[in-house]
Design a protein around this nucleic acid. Structure first.
Lengths: 213, 213
DNA sequence: CGGCACTTGAAACAAGTGTTTCAAGTGTAT
DNA sequence: ATACACTTGAAACACTTGTTTCAAGTGCCG
């Protein structure tokens, strides 16, 4: 009944959807949950986004884009600092991993989004995952890793990267459960500790991957 | 209307549910999908299992139990073969990882189950994950790893294991997509190749984790 | 002030969900 | 053969889902 004069309803819908998607998953979140949290009407989602699916697509793009941009920015910075001979493996990996953890720190409640996303059916994922969002990241990091890992085959690098991604997704998403299971062994009050562990693990792992090392 | 004289309806329900859960996820699979595929009536699930949730719990337990048992069996075998000084790190990790890949080989269509499971909301997971299914595995492998990694702290071991689990889940579940993205770089016709890569990666990673090494 | 494009609210929609009910059928033991 | 416990089928239940509809409200521009 009211035009409140502001254009922030779509943003509030995105925020609410992000939070709830992350908390319960996409299919476990109804439009009524979202609109209730956003203080909007049920019809608002279809009015502004057309459908629940397109809302979800926007929710993801809003985060994935900047995240990948920051990965590229970090890599550029590290490469600039390293000069001619190129950055060390650890620095390349940290440039890739750090934005993820930093995003979790700044948006702790909405972070599970990415793992939730991995859990959706493949056809849904492919509709959301616009390849152009990732092409540059892949290109840039492949070049940097090839350079930082002389003597390691491209196939090994490829696998190493995906081992790293899997490890990252898992610990970052299941952290609370891991802490509960570890009996105080895994305290992650300091996020950099976890990042450093992951970076050291992956760096050592990638260096030790070649069969005839 | 008929008692077909056999007791295989529950088994057919479990099989159908497993296949569909793995393919689309739990919440995207309806009881009608399951019962249709199993050639049973909609009421059959509630008759035999009480509810959809308890059916899901059974579906997981049916696979997770034997899988963990085989992990323990492998570890015992490796420990027996190694004798007094204990098995090498690579052998311990392989004993842990191999059953997962072997299960995927034998039940390729139902394997995604485990990743789907990781994607369900936490409360659901906790209802399914009976701790007693994992206690022995944790106990045994922790002891073996502490022995195979002298000088590495328990915390580092703990993190390394979860990095490994994350990497394993990810590559094993997203394999088809990874192959598509890799432009022929990642061919996994030979499952042992992937296992060995993962084992070498994790072994090198765990050895290189300690900060002041 | 009056008209207009834009938002909102409340209600209803059609479709799908998990679950329950109950009569009808079956095999087995008495 | 008769009784009985066990399974099944078809239908209905109560509820939630995403979506649509339309009247009512708002602020802005002429």
């Amino acid at each position: 009944m009211a035009n409140h004069g502001n254009r922030e309803t779509p943003r509030r819908l995105l925020d609410a959807a992000e939070r709830l998607f992350a908390e319960r998953g996409i299919s476990h979140t109804s439009l009524r949950d979202i609109t209730a949290e956003a203080g909007a009407n049920v019809a608002a989602v279809n009015y502004y986004f057309g459908s629940k699916n397109e809302l979800a697509r926007e929710v993801f793009a809003r985060r994935m884009g900047p995240l990948n941009e920051e990965r590229i920015r970090h890599l550029s910075e590290v490469e600039r600092a390293a000069g001619e001979e190129g950055p060390a493996l650890e620095d390349v990996l940290r440039a890739f991993v750090l934005p993820t953890f930093r995003f979790r720190k700044e948006h702790p409640e909405s972070f599970r989004l990415f793992q939730r996303f991995h859990a959706e059916p493949p056809e849904f994922r492919e509709r959301c995952l616009r390849p152009e969002l990732f092409r540059e990241v892949i290109e840039r990091y492949r070049a940097a890793l090839v350079r930082a890992l002389p003597g390691v085959s491209l196939a090994s690098i490829w696998w190493g990267v995906h081992f790293l991604i899997g490890a990252m997704i898992h610990v970052v998403a299941a952290q609370r459960e891991l802490e509960k299971m570890s009996n105080g062994l895994a305290v992650s009050g300091d996020e950099t500790e976890m990042v450093e562990r992951l970076v050291r693990f992956a760096a050592a792992g990638m260096r030790g991957m070649e069969p005839g090392r």
